[in-house]
Amino acid sequence: MPYARRTTPTTEPGEQDFHLASLRQSSDTPADLLAQGESFEDLLASGVLSDDLDSEGLETTEEFIARTEREKASQPAVEPEYLSDEEVDEMIAKTRALWPIK
């Protein structure tokens, strides 16, 4: 369509804003609100439930792999000292004995 242009959701308070505010104003405890069927996600968004997800210092797997590969590339290439078959078998056996996998 020739006249399509950017539209963002309105900045006026909407249904969800009023809902989140009502959760914040509720006299019920967060536990009560959850038990009464309020969604966990709404309670998080409203700030009634807090999260503590600071993951500073943690890398995604992709970042981890990229970093370790960079580090490896900066080291002189060394042929690893491979484990013997017995040592490998022992590793497998110890892994299986470590904790029962259900």
């Binding site: 690893p80 491979y82 484990l83 490998v88 590793m91 497998i92 892994t95 904790w99």
Partner: peptide, 29 residues
């Protein structure tokens, strides 16, 4: 310990088993 030594396992099959089963162990933990 397995993580440190996994690159020293030459046999691809054994390596796959060790990777898979130790991930299972970590998941169970």
């Amino acid at each position: 310990k397995v993580g440190r030594r996994i690159d020293k396992v030459r046999d691809p099959l054994a390596r796959r088993v060790l990777i898979k089963e130790n991930l299972q162990q970590a998941s169970a933990l």
